[in-house]
């Protein structure tokens, strides 16, 4: 069998539902796509700790303080699980961090925005995590079995984050006018990043990650799911969604919404979002300033970013 035939056979097998383990033979393109996909997921988890981190000190009750800290800890924990997968696929952690800090690899667009109030803590934990759960649940069917298994644990934990975030929002919506206004204002800022969350509606046949079975559902499908599930829940509690065109088109069986500026998404993901450079700068500093610790316990092997 030629290399090319072997690759084709592998591709047919994963499309037919074959599950791949870390030690199995895999085509180089599959390995590289897995690395890129999981690495971006991992980077997003660790960069996602930064916007919420500022609120660890500011949570208004002990229970909220503990829940916010535990939630961010979970996100870092997810990064740890995912970095291990990437390392097992052949990319060392020092290199992963070097690429993150230099901007060579990416992290999710939703983490390129600043947080401005306690409302953001609720909206992020509830709706950003809800959006994430929808795409992560689709990854339970990934052809790469270690990733799919890791996702079981991650989805389980995300369910608690959603509850924590929803409870913050609901409690404020039952509170004073100022509290309600805080939640409304946060939702208005986060709506656009949420609509961009799954990326542009790339035709499924052009999406190579779908072809390799790394992910299992198309971007627009995921967005429609999110809207179906969460638009009623958001409206029901008295929040207004800042999109006058948003409605469910009964005849087409899908949600219609205002045009999304996909060029803006590309710019944000490339590091030109409102908080991109500040976040990367902070990550770089905190990584560089702790290099001596890693050196002390591993006896060197530190890669210069």
């Amino acid at each position: 069998m030629t290399e090319e035939q072997r690759v084709e056979e592998f591709k047919r097998a994963v499309q037919a539902g074959r599950k791949v383990e870390a030690g199995d033979w895999m085509p180089d393109e599959y390995r590289q796509r897995l690395i890129r996909f999981i690495e971006m997921h991992a980077n997003s988890e660790i960069m996602g700790a930064l916007p919420e981190r500022d609120w660890i000190l500011r949570a208004p009750t002990l229970q909220r303080k503990l829940a916010v800290t535990a939630k961010i800890q979970d996100e870092v924990g997810h990064a740890q699980l995912l970095y291990r997968l990437v390392e097992d696929l052949g990319k060392p952690r020092e290199q992963i961090f070097a690429d993150l800090i230099s901007g060579k690899s990416k992290f999710h667009n939703v983490f390129h925005y600043p947080t401005r109030s306690w409302g953001d803590v609720g909206v992020i934990a509830w709706l950003v995590d809800a959006a994430a759960v929808i795409s992560q649940s689709a990854l339970l069917k990934s052809s790469y079995a270690p990733y799919a298994r890791t996702m079981r644990r991650i989805c389980w934990e995300e369910a608690f984050h959603l509850k924590h975030g929803e409870d913050i929002v609901l409690t404020a919506m039952m509170g004073t006018a100022k509290q309600r206004a805080m939640m409304q204002e946060a939702l208005e800022r986060w709506w656009e990043p949420l609509m961009m969350f799954y990326g542009p509606p790339t035709p499924p046949e052009q999406d190579k990650d779908l072809a390799w079975g790394i992910k299992s559902r198309a971007n627009e499908d995921l967005r429609q799911d999110f809207l179906t599930k969460y638009v009623p829940r958001i409206r029901e509690i008295g929040l207004r969604i800042p999109d006058p065109k948003l409605r469910f088109d009964e005849s087409a069986g899908r949600w219609v919404y205002s045009d999304i500026d996909w060029d803006k998404l590309v710019a944000v993901a490339r590091g030109n979002g409102p908080a991109s450079q500040q976040r990367l700068g902070f990550r770089r500093l905190s990584y560089e300033e702790t290099a001596w610790v890693r050196e002390a316990i591993t006896g060197g092997a530190e890669l210069v970013a």
Binding site: I46, A49, L50, R53, I56, L57, K65, T69, I72, Q73, E75, V76, A79, Q80, Y83, F282, S286, T290, V293, R294, I297
Partner: peptide, 13 residues
């Protein structure tokens, strides 16, 4: 708790 997200190692974090 301020080390959450920025500790020297992800595991230690």
């Amino acid at each position: 708790s301020e080390w959450t997200g920025i500790a020297p190692l992800v595991e230690e974090d």
